[in-house]
Design a protein around this nucleic acid. Structure first.
Length: 272
DNA sequence: TAGGGATGGGTAA
DNA sequence: TACCCCTCCCTAA
């Protein structure tokens, strides 16, 4: 689930379902039981997302900090819960009438203070989905860095909310070799990448999936069949190792970089 | 039906 | 860099 567009979508959904209302809070699994008991019956004022971090506000110093990690899921349900797993995995449940939210397998689900929340926000890089981000913080970091652009885009203190799909796809869309050093990225190229992340990730929030094969921004792409990944969106290179590039036909390459699978077209994204 | 990979990230070494 | 967390879902048998 979790690139930044998912977190923002969930924050919007939680606010719409519960914002300003008293809610029932429980932890059927038990691992968040003490905190849930403290919050039960209280008013959920709103939920906010910063990158991949989700903050659910129950009042001063009563912030539920959720990070889904790789495998966590948060289901927003109207009516009977239909999720497959049982209560033994249900870390957190928030409910109001027929509306409920069910959290399973999160990396973190913690009750934190306002100060702790603010520290997380301060440590986060630019989030392309947030109106208060400009891309300048990210530019300042990458222009001084000898690390690869592929590594920097996944660094949440540089660009917050960008994950493995958006990384691979945005670099492809701008024909940038993933191993190019951050300090060798031009201002012009960064501006284009940032503007593209803003468009792609906000569309991801609206549509609920990662679609990076969008307008015919690459003339060569016209007439080619896009490829629908099993996450539900259309992608150029993500998880397409060995298959022909949709633009030039060259086999898409992949390599594990810092523990994550990286995908790119060696021809469209030549080193230079 | 069993097994493994996955849109993350912290910690230890 | 390796390992851990601990759920869902796709694939191979």
């Amino acid at each position: 689930m979790p690139e930044g567009h998912v977190t923002h979508r969930l924050a919007d959904g939680l606010t719409a379902m519960f914002g300003g209302h008293a809610v029932r809070v429980s932890s059927p699994q038990g691992r968040f039981a003490d905190e849930a008991a403290l919050l039960d019956g209280g008013v959920l004022s709103r939920a906010d997302a910063y990158g991949k971090h989700l903050f659910v506000d129950f009042g001063p110093d009563r912030i539920v900090h959720i990070h889904l990690g790789l495998i966590g899921k948060l289901w927003l349900i109207d009516g009977e819960p239909t999720s497959p797993a049982g209560p033994d995995t249900l870390r957190l449940r928030i409910a109001r009438g027929p509306l409920s939210a069910e959290l399973r397998g999160p990396q973190w689900c913690r009750l934190v203070t306002d100060e702790a929340r603010d520290e997380v926000i301060a440590a986060s890089g630019d989030d392309p989905i947030r109106d208060d981000s400009t891309g300048e913080k990210a530019w300042a970091k990458l222009t001084r860095s000898g690390r690869s652009i592929a590594s920097l885009l996944m660094d949440q203190s540089v660009t917050a909310g960008v994950g493995n799909i958006y990384r691979a796809e945005v670099l492809f869309r701008h024909r940038v070799n993933p191993f190019r050093e951050g300090r060798r990225i031009s201002r012009c190229t960064w501006n284009a990448i940032w503007a593209d992340l803003v468009v792609l990730m906000r569309a991801g929030v609206a549509e609920g999936r990662v679609d990076t094969v969008r307008e015919a921004h690459l003339p060569e792409a016209m007439g080619r069949e896009p490829r629908v990944d099993r996450h539900g969106g259309e992608v150029y290179v993500y998880r397409r190792a060995g298959q022909p590039c949709l633009v030039c036909g060259t086999a898409v390459r992949s390599q594990v970089l810092e523990g994550r699978n990286l995908y790119w077209c060696p021809r469209c994204q030549r080193r230079r």
